[in-house]
Design a binder for these strands. Structure first.
Length: 488
RNA sequence: GGGAGUGUAGCUCAGGAGGUAGAGCAACGCACUUUUAAUGCGUAGGUCCUGGGUUCGAAUCCCAGCACUCUCACCA
């Protein structure tokens, strides 16, 4: 698609300007530039009645209007934009440098802070106040429409971030959300920890793992699919409240809701249970909404989501009945339903089949925040069974706009039951569950306090709170097929 | 993997009932000291994704492939 000869045509012109800048004795790649004020702050403090105001900002030239002996520049930094005015009479010796500026270049601008005739707050750069900081050698995207080619936006995120300001804003919000969660949990006495990303047994979930190899030990290792079993070992160790915000890796397909590496916040709270986790989830998400300065009503595509508490809590069996018309224990009806939905049920366990029907009929309809509670116990080998009805596990999954956003259990702390569940899992299971984590069972034998555990998918939470309908819009560098010479 | 769509200038996009193509922005030149996507005049810029076929002639029609998007399937 990109014609090399043409790319060179534009780059050539900019190379020539770079050479002219060098000929002036100026380093076209700049150096340390101190005392920079954010553009937004400079604009915010401006006062009409003060002639002595000055400002010093730095950023990228995103617009440039050359009116002969006067040039107006829109300078963008991480906080926004500010106009820079370059006038021949003010700049004097630096005027030739001003005439060499291109859109995309990075400059520093210092001078009087004032207004133009039309009322735009402007830094009127004085001689010596123009600092060349870095030359952009490529033609930037179209100034009004920005970068629209979706593939190129992800591949060249470094361009996307400044060509499309809403992209930068969304990633700033992501950072704000993660910081809010850390602050909230830390204030509650949770300790942030880091557990292994490379594990000899990929436990804590059922997913296909990525495999890597440690040379010195000649040992295959798995990138973790979950930190769960390590965090619960810490409960045994007496860290009664722990959390980790980090990447999980699952070797599965890509979609609007799935990236092979994704960020999970997982926490464990001794002496809690899954109901405590529901309250905590509402509070955590509430803290994020508050920090972002949002109303509880959030727009997502065509849907409006209302996060006002409390959120709906509905039993798995009831939702199944409501959306599929089948009772959770009516297997003939569920088999029939599965066939009607063209689910391939050959060789499928009953519980797995029920869950297939659940996923196809129920999940996509859960738009408003909904805690699905009381899952069939066989689907939850790490969760404690209900004392009142052992067919069910004390587990919830939180759904919003049809997406699983969180998952929580009352944690199973009985080593004998855990051992049995592991054994049961091993029969006919996929690769992630072929090895038993016997050390985890040993840990439970040393006594793990009863506890609640919660995982929140950070990427999906950011999607919901920023209105991003694809996970790739909340991951800076999503996984893409590499560009090869053959497919270019 | 199935289905649908898209691929044209650096960027954003038109167009093309078969006769080798256009706009805006960006670039280059000229003019302009208060612009706001500055403006006006001029110039330059294209393997119309790739390969094959039909045809006197293909960017357009046909076939195959590649890439991307959406969607379905897969995914505790």
């Amino acid at each position: 698609m990109t014609n090399q000869a043409d790319t060179d045509r534009f780059e050539q012109q900019r190379q020539e300007k770079l050479a002219q800048i060098e000929a002036m004795g100026i380093d076209p790649y700049g150096s340390r530039y101190d005392d920079v004020e954010p553009a937004a702050a400079a604009k915010a403090r401006y006062r009409d009645d003060d002639e002595s105001q000055r400002a010093r900002c730095a950023g990228r030239i995103v617009l440039l209007r050359d009116i002969g002996k006067l040039i107006f520049i829109t300078l963008r930094d991480r906080t926004g934009t500010i106009q820079v005015g370059l006038s021949k009479s003010l700049l004097t010796a630096q005027w030739p440098l001003a005439k060499l500026l291109d859109i995309g270049d990075i400059i520093g601008a210092a001078g009087k802070l004032g207004k133009t005739k039309t009322g735009e707050i402007t830094i009127w750069v004085e001689d010596g106040g123009l600092t060349f900081l870095s030359k952009c050698l490529f033609q930037p995207p179209e100034k009004f429409h920005g970068l629209a080619d979706i593939d190129q936006r992800y591949r060249q995120r470094y361009v996307d971030l400044w060509a499309n300001p809403e992209v930068l804003e969304r990633f700033q919000k992501r950072s704000t959300i993660v910081a809010a969660i850390r602050r909230f949990l830390t204030a509650r006495g949770f300790l942030e920890v880091e557990t292994p990303m490379m594990q000899t047994i990929a436990g804590g979930a059922a997913a296909k793992p990525f495999i890597t190899h440690h040379n010195a030990l000649d040992l295959d290792l798995y990138l973790r699919i979950s930190p769960e079993l390590f965090l619960k070992r810490l409960l045994v160790g007496g860290l009664e409240r722990v959390f980790e915000i980090n990447r999980n890796f699952r070797n599965e397909g890509l979609s609007r809701h799935h990236n092979p590496e994704f960020t999970m916040m997982e926490l464990y709270q001794a002496y809690g249970d899954y109901r405590a986790m529901m309250d905590l989830t509402e509070e955590i998400v509430g803290a994020c909404i508050e920090t972002l300065g949002l109303n509880t009503k959030v727009q997502f595509g065509d849907a409006q989501i209302d996060f006002a508490r409390p959120w709906r809590r509905a039993r798995y069996a009831d939702l199944l009945q409501e959306h599929s018309g089948c009772a959770v224990d009516d297997l003939p009806a569920l088999r029939a339903k599965a066939r009607a939905l063209s689910i391939d049920d050959a060789g499928m366990d009953d519980a797995v089949l029920v869950n297939e029907v659940f996923e196809t009929t129920v999940e996509r309809n859960l738009t408003a925040p909904t805690f699905v509670i009381d899952y069939p116990a066989v689907l939850c080998p790490l969760a404690k069974r209900s004392r009142t009805d052992p067919r069910y596990a004390e587990r919830f999954e939180l759904f919003v706009v049809g997406m699983e956003l969180a998952n929580a259990y009352t944690e199973l702390n009985d080593p004998a039951v855990q051992y049995e569940n592991f054994l049961h899992q091993l029969r006919g299971q996929e690769e992630s569950l072929t090895k038993m984590d016997t050390d985890y069972v040993t840990a439970l034998k040393y006594a793990m306090p009863p506890a609640g555990g919660l995982g929140i998918g950070i990427d999906r939470l950011v999607m919901v709170l920023t209105g991003a309908t694809t996970i790739r819009d909340v991951i800076l560098f999503p996984l893409l097929k590499p560009v090869t010479p053959e497919n270019k």
